[in-house]
Amino acid sequence: MKELWELFYTFAIIGVSTFGGGAAMLPILQREIVEKRGWATQDELTDYYAIGQCTPGIIAVNTATFIGHKRKGVAGGIVSTFGMVFPSLVIITVIAAFLRGFADSETVKNAFAGIRACVCILILNAVVKLWKSAVVDKPGIVIFTLAFIISVFTDISVIFVVLAAGLAGYVIKRMKGGAKK
């Protein structure tokens, strides 16, 4: 029970600290889950993102479910997700009920323009950390570069990129294994 409560409030903290989409959440996840609590490694986090990007739903929820499930099974997955969405439920309900003009306020607009600039750098920093643990050799650099270029400059679906990268990984490992024998 104590561990479930810990999952709930950890993910509530992550939820309330996320400003933006799935990528913006990455720096907070690294801090709270990998560095502070050791509940997952950088590599596992990368795996969860890979799966989260090509399965249905919000990446934040996919990642929360994965980590919760790893810690405490099905109950852990559900509790973590509930923790993740809890701050949104409270904050958005209050805004929708009492602060209809919230997004039009000058102060809010200014604050968020500042926050977005900061989030860029936090994401950059987070990507560098993942890069160090996930891009370990030449094929890795090629796959990273291709995935990046395809995603930025074309409309090719992320699902295709992920499937192709998985297949490439399988083939490369097989060929390396074959070379050893």
């Binding site: 933006g20 989409g21 799935g22 990528a23 913006a24 990455l26 590599d43 990368t46 795996d47 993102y49 890979a50 990007q53 977005r116 989030v119 860029c120 994401i123 950059l124 987070a126 990507v127 993942l130 890069w131 996930a134 891009v135 094929p139 890795g140 650099i141 796959i143 990273f144 570069t145 291709l146 995935a147 990046f148 995603s151 930025v152 992320v158 990129v161 992920v162 192709a164 990268a165 998985g166 297949l167 490439a168 990984g169 399988y170 490369i172 490992k173 097989r174």
Partner: peptide, 24 residues
């Protein structure tokens, strides 16, 4: 076999997150 697939997935996943960062 699954590990080999993830060996390819990880760099792609980082590339996709980097691309999302570029959008931001």
């Amino acid at each position: 076999a699954v590990d080999s697939v993830f060996y390819g997935l990880r760099p792609a996943s980082v590339g996709l997150i980097a691309a999302a960062g570029v959008e931001v």
